[in-house]
Amino acid sequence: MKNKIKIERARHNLTQQDLANKIGVSRQTINAMESNKYVPSTVLALKIARLFQLTVEEIFLLDEND
């Protein structure tokens, strides 16, 4: 799965730590998601989407391996 967290984070001018604080996870989790090492739970995906005022599908995309 691919995601646009890094792009959206830059667009909203947030650091990894800011984003982590806003959605209540560790900075490691944000980093792992941005580097595609971790696929978040549905709850976390929905929280990220709500924060960026987008739908989940606008941030998270299936890739050819899924």
């Binding site: 982590a20 996870v25 560790s26 900075r27 490691q28 989790t29 998601m33 971790y38 978040p40 739970s41």
Partner: peptide, 10 residues
């Protein structure tokens, strides 16, 4: 952990 979240659980 200080920030025990779903990734840390994994």
């Amino acid at each position: 952990e200080k920030h025990e979240d779903e990734f840390i659980s994994k």
